[in-house]
Structure formats: structure tokens, C-alpha cells
Design a protein around this nucleic acid. Sequence first.
DNA 1: CTGTATCCGAGTGGATACTG
DNA 2: CAGTATCCACTCGGATACAG
Lengths: 131, 131
Amino acid sequence: MATKPDARRRVEAGQCDAYDPSCPSRPLLDRLADKWVVLLLSALADGPLRYSDLARIVGGVSQKMLTQTLRVMERDGLVSRRVTPSVPVRVDYGLTPLGWTLMPLMYAVKEWSEVHVEEVEAARATYEADL
Amino acid sequence: MATKPDARRRVEAGQCDAYDPSCPSRPLLDRLADKWVVLLLSALADGPLRYSDLARIVGGVSQKMLTQTLRVMERDGLVSRRVTPSVPVRVDYGLTPLGWTLMPLMYAVKEWSEVHVEEVEAARATYEADL
DNA sequence: CTGTATCCGAGTGGATACTG
DNA sequence: CAGTATCCACTCGGATACAG
């Protein structure tokens, strides 16, 4: 029981390497390196939120992508989904202990974008000018 | 000179918000939330590398995606590209000061994937079982 | 309110071939 | 060595309609 000792040994031995496309961490990284994942995990930093709250906070997200991304994150054990069988139904999403360990990293990426967007824009302008 | 005070005020005033799809930080976040960006910035953590080195280290990356991603990162001011006009030509890619500030975040995401891949796999197994 | 289902246009990215 | 160019299968994701 517990987690598989085989893979854990592989991690400790440095054999789990996202540089290796055949390592399971690669497809995981691919799922995490996603705009909606970053924004949704960041949005849940202050506590659980309802589906409609997430839709409002994360601007521009379609219903399809919101549901799809939440499903994948739930499946990966990053968020929990709790249904309150009221009428109408109410669904709350929150970070799991695992999701809680990832959230700060994603939040940092989101903040980096906001803080450094100008420097990037300036670099882009320079790049264009030098063409 | 320096960076534009206008946008800086916007950032400080909380008007630069990646949750807002019309904020310039959103498309930036979208470019950063990319598998290859995470892996390439991580690969450059120990110093500049040649094109062929990057192709070797980052397994599974196609020539097209490697070049394309490096171009975008160069354009965004994250990496520098230095050409040595030898025969054959030699090209070194390195982190810019701006890229240096982002690299640790990306490296952390890559490491998170490697360290927690098992917990995620376990969560996925549980999710499947509960269907 | 919280989804699911389907359509479909646009963009992504791998494979391949070729170049300075 | 370090690209560029092209083709094209595939996926992504928005829009829309409908449902529990």
C-alpha cells in the first residue's frame, strides 16, 4: 500500500526526469503547464469557490474549458469537488493538500506575468525594431 | 527612460490582472504556461547552452518547436542568442537578467512534477476506480 | 446553477526535406 | 551545426444548444 516504492526509488535515484519524454512526469508537466490551470489554482488560493465564482473570477474562460480543466485537476488530485444537493445544486471547488503544495508555484508564475509584462513588452518592441 | 511609469502604476494599482483576458499579462501568461518554455528555461539554469545541447537535453522536442520556442523567448527578452561565426556556426543560448528571475519558478514547476508524479498517478488511479 | 453534448474553424506541432 | 520551409493530421477550444 502507500505509494509505489518502485517509482519513489526512481525519483530518489534521479531517474524521474521531466526532460525524458518517456517519464510519467512529462505528461504531467504538460497538463500543469496550462494557462487555465495556473489561473484556477491561483483563484483557489484564498479558499474554496463555487463553479460560478470561478467562471466570474477567471475572465474569458469558456464553460467547456472551465469544466474540463477542473475535471483534470480533480482527477490529478489537485482540487476537491463537493456537491451540495440543494436546489439548485451548489458545487464547491477547493485545493487538496497536494494542490496546496502546487498553488504557490502557479501563483508565482501568474504574478510574474503581471509584474514583468512591461519589461517583456519593451523587449518585444526592441526585437521588432531590430528586424 | 527606464520602464514606462504608466503601466507600472497600473500594476501597483492592481490594474494589471492576469484574470482579465484583456490585460497584456494574459497572453504573456499563455506563452509562459508552456511545456517547452518550462523545460528550456530549466535547462539553461546552469549556464548557456548550444542549440544542439538543448535539443539533446530536452528529449522529444522537435527541431521546429525548439527553434520556435527559443525565438519567442528571445523576443520576450527571456533568453539571449549569441552567434559565433565559426565554421560550422555555433549558437549559444543563455538566460537574460529577466529570464533569470523567471527561471526559478519554472524550475520549481518542473521539479514539482517529478517529485509529485506518483501522488498524482495514485490520485488518478483512485479517480478511475471510483467511476 | 452546474453542467453535458456536438459541431467545427483555427491553430498546434510532428515529420520531412532542404540550406548557409 | 543550426536552422528554414512546407505539408498535414490532429487537437484545442469557442459557440451553441440542451439537461438534471
